[in-house]
Design a protein around this nucleic acid. Structure first.
Length: 794
DNA sequence: ATAGGGTTAG
């Protein structure tokens, strides 16, 4: 027990402490604390009122744990009356962490019998949302009711904020709707919540609602809904918000200004974004980042990189990982491996290679620059991977034509314990499309439904494409019909489906539906339509569509459209018309387009024009082996072996090789691939036996190997063998022996199906009594009872 | 306030 003189000393010391609270001098405070301890010994009890000051002092120095320790030394009967101190320590923990301690202390407070106040709840709830500790938050909500604070504006706003940040929007809305009085902070919390969870239209709607209710938005309101306006490209609302800021004088605030700048960038209004950037009095790193992002989004990558350089030089700011990710996203648009390597080096030097967001952006960069090797290598080097990393690499594989690797990565991802997300499925489903892997695709569909991804328009579009490419056009249409909101991609995907199945009339019908529903077609729509006409031989319809495209829909024809038209006219045998059409083009035709004409020349055996076209192609420089193959095929079809030989020699001299034909089929979720003459399949003996059987029966029915399709100058018997082992025949024979009779056979080929195979497959449908479908690079061939659905348009 | 993975055509 201290004596009188020590009491005087303590009082003196506590005065000193009070002074320290103002000056936040931790060192001096600690010394004074020691002095007090010496004076009063271990018996704090009687001195506890004075210890409050020490607690406050430590809190003012941000030493929550020390403050807490002093607070704990006060006996419980005395702590009971110190609600404000409880609140202050909880607040300190909720602000800076450790956040668990805020929740623990709150629980201790309630257990001690201290009644929390309306100021307690916002703090502890903030800690709960930071921890994503829903259980504690819900319990605390119960306490608020118990203490009759459920109608308090502060408490309710805190509850809304808590529920929103934990993703419980229904509960948030319930609390919000139940509030007897709502101030601007409450409205902002709700709007920010909608914004945060991508419910953009709800967020925007809420702001008009609040204005109708007579509550004036403030700058936080603007900041809260700006991302929603940006994401939905609601330029009208964006402009209105900008005007509001000008009238209220918010516009010079960095946060508001940056939000507006970002919104204009995302809405494609680069001029406005640039203007804001120029006029904003105070800019920070985020402002610069938003401006660079605006350039990238609007495809002004050079300008973005320039500004990035300028920032480092003139403003001498160091970029944050967020900014670096934006810059890398820009680099990806350049499709230049050198740039990719440069920015990778820069990232390495900057020390951000451990930032997962930056790393994932780098993955996507390499994927878009077409470098599978760098992408895989970097992926393996990454110390930390998450589901986004896997999604990026899956999409990267698909983008580079390695769908099988994509499926493997998808499998590996799950083994690593990551659940596929929406964007993962956006990579997985196109992989199934590419492979015609129907069984994987169906699993993906099921999973997407379970996860609720089906409501996403883009995902449904990917499903439509998957079913179309797997030959299940009816399923595709079911998905299409079930969709709530369709975008232009949905229509296009379905149109493409009809096109590749040879349903030209259905495509045109769907286009009419599209117009009736007021959907605006784009240039892809017309590519799809024209190619559908081409595959169905609808010449006049195609010509009409080409005409209305520019006249009515104001869409300028591009190379693809001209290509489709040449293809359409050429296949139909209108070679001169096709040739004339090319000469009317407003820009130079490319080799690809001439190829379409050359291909038509081959089908219709017009050697004269074919040679002229071929010369044209050669003058453009040999850009692909396709030219040689076509010319070669044309000569051989005409039995002009010498000319054919010259082409083959030239091709060899120039170092071009024919791409090997490859066909594959999915059996029980496993992809079996065959190349021409392939004997490597484990069941080759059985396949061979089946092929021989089929060959005998086909010949009885009148089939003779069309050796014209063998362009090697070898003996007739040898030619037959080569044809019999064409990859599509191998795949079909394998399918017949390994799939039950009622199962459909769907074979996919990486090139156009060969003419001899096309004939042979017709016989095979009769012999094997089953339907066979082959998807080649341009369309589906459904063989049934000796007929192919393509009607020889391929 | 800025930030990573995404659908259709050739």
């Amino acid at each position: 027990m201290p004596n009188r003189s020590s009491t005087t000393k303590i009082i003196f010391l506590l005065r000193l402490i009070e002074a320290c609270i103002g000056s936040k001098s931790l060192k001096q405070g600690k010394i004074i604390h020691q002095c007090i301890l010496k004076l009063i010994g271990e018996d704090f009890g009687s001195q506890s009122p004075h210890l409050d000051k020490l607690v406050r002092f430590y809190l003012s120095c941000n030493r929550h744990q020390l403050a807490h320790r002093v607070f704990n030394s006060i006996p419980n009967h005395s702590r009971k009356n110190k609600t404000i101190l409880w609140n202050q320590i909880i607040r300190a923990y909720a602000w800076d962490g450790p956040f668990e301690k805020a929740v623990d202390l709150y629980n201790e407070m309630v257990d001690t019998g201290v009644i929390p106040t309306k100021y307690t709840f916002p703090f502890v709830l903030k800690a709960c949302s930071t921890l994503q500790d829903v259980d504690s938050g819900v319990k605390i909500h119960g306490h608020a009711k118990r203490y009759n604070l459920e109608n308090d504006v502060y408490v309710c706003t805190a509850l809304v904020d808590f529920y929103v940040k934990c993703g419980y929007l229904v509960e948030a809305r319930e609390v919000f709707d139940g509030m007897p009085r709502r101030d601007v902070v409450a409205w902002n919390a709700m709007a920010a919540g909608f914004s945060l969870h991508g419910l953009c239209l709800d967020a925007i709607g809420l702001v008009s609602e609040m204005q109708n209710k007579g509550v004036e938005p403030n700058s936080s309101t603007i900041v809260a809904i700006m991302p929603s306006i940006a994401e939905t490209c609601r330029l009208r609302e964006g402009r209105a918000a900008h005007g509001f800021c000008l009238r209220r004088d918010f516009h010079d605030d960095v946060v508001v200004g940056t939000g507006l700048l970002d919104m204009y960038g995302k809405c494609g209004k680069l001029v406005h974004a640039k203007h804001l950037f120029k006029t904003l009095a105070l800019k920070n790193e985020i402002t610069w980042s938003a401006m660079i992002g605006a350039f990238v989004t609007c495809d002004y990558v050079e300008e973005a990189l320039e500004l990035f350089k300028k920032m480092r030089m003139e403003a001498s700011m160091t970029p944050s990982p967020v900014m670096l990710a934006t810059v890398i996203r820009g680099c990806a648009k350049l499709n230049d491996l050198n740039v990719a390597n440069q920015i990778h080096c820069y990232t390495f030097k900057s020390g951000y290679v451990s930032d997962i967001i930056v790393c994932n952006t780098l993955l996507s960069l390499y994927a878009k620059c077409g470098s599978m090797n760098y992408m895989i290598k970097f992926f393996q080097e990454m110390q930390a991977k998450d589901s986004v990393s896997y999604s990026a690499i899956i999409t990267g594989c698909v983008q580079n034509g390695n769908a099988e690797d994509a499926l493997q990565m998808f499998h590996k991802m799950q083994l690593s314990g990551f659940e596929p997300e929406l964007a993962t499925m956006m990579g997985f489903l196109p992989a199934c499309s590419q492979l015609s892997a129907l069984q994987h695709g169906i699993c993906g569909h099921g999973y997407s439904v379970v996860r609720g991804f089906e409501s996403n328009v883009s995902l449904s579009n990917a499903l439509i494409d998957m079913y179309n490419k797997c030959g299940k056009i009816e399923e595709a249409r079911l998905v299409f019909d079930k969709m709530h909101g369709r975008d232009v991609v949905s229509w296009n995907a379905m149109l493409v489906g009809y096109g590749i199945h040879g349903y030209g009339k259905e495509a045109i019908l769907l286009f009419q539906n599209m117009q009736n529903e007021g959907a605006q077609p784009d240039y892809v729509t017309f590519v799809a339509l024209l190619s559908a006409c081409s595959h169905s031989g609808l010449v006049s319809e195609g010509k009409y569509l080409f005409h209305v495209m520019s006249q009515e829909f104001k869409i300028l024809p591009r190379m693809d459209h001209y290509f489709c038209m040449v293809d359409l006219l050429g296949r139909a045998g209108l070679l001169d018309e096709a040739h004339n059409f090319v000469s009317t083009m407003p820009f130079e035709p490319d080799a690809h387009l001439w190829n379409a004409l050359l291909s038509a020349c081959r089908i219709h055996k017009n050697i004269e024009l074919g040679e002229a076209v071929s010369k044209k192609i050669q003058s453009l420089g040999p850009s692909s082996t396709g030219n040689f193959v076509l010319l070669f095929n044309m000569y051989t079809t005409a039995h002009r072996w010498d000319d054919a030989a010259v082409v083959r020699i030239t091709q060899k001299d120039l170092g071009f090789r024919k791409r090997p034909g490859c066909s594959w089929i999915e059996v029980n979720g496993i992809i079996h691939a065959f190349v021409g003459g392939d004997r490597s399949h484990p069941q080759f003996a059985m396949i061979n036996k089946k092929l021989d059987e089929l060959d005998v029966e086909m010949k009885i029915m009148g089939y003779s190997a069309e050796s014209d399709f063998v362009y090697q100058d070898v003996e007739e018997e040898e030619k037959e063998k080569i044809l019999l082992y064409h990859s599509e025949k191998l795949a079909v024979a394998f399918a017949i022996i390994s799939l039950k009779a009622h199962k459909p056979i769907i074979v996919t080929k990486n090139l156009r199906v060969c003419g001899d195979c096309h004939t042979a497959l017709k016989y095979m449908t009769i012999i094997a009594k089953r339907e066979i479908t082959v998807r080649d690079t341009s369309r589906f061939h459904h063989f049934r009872e000796g007929i192919c659905s393509c009607g020889e348009f391929w």
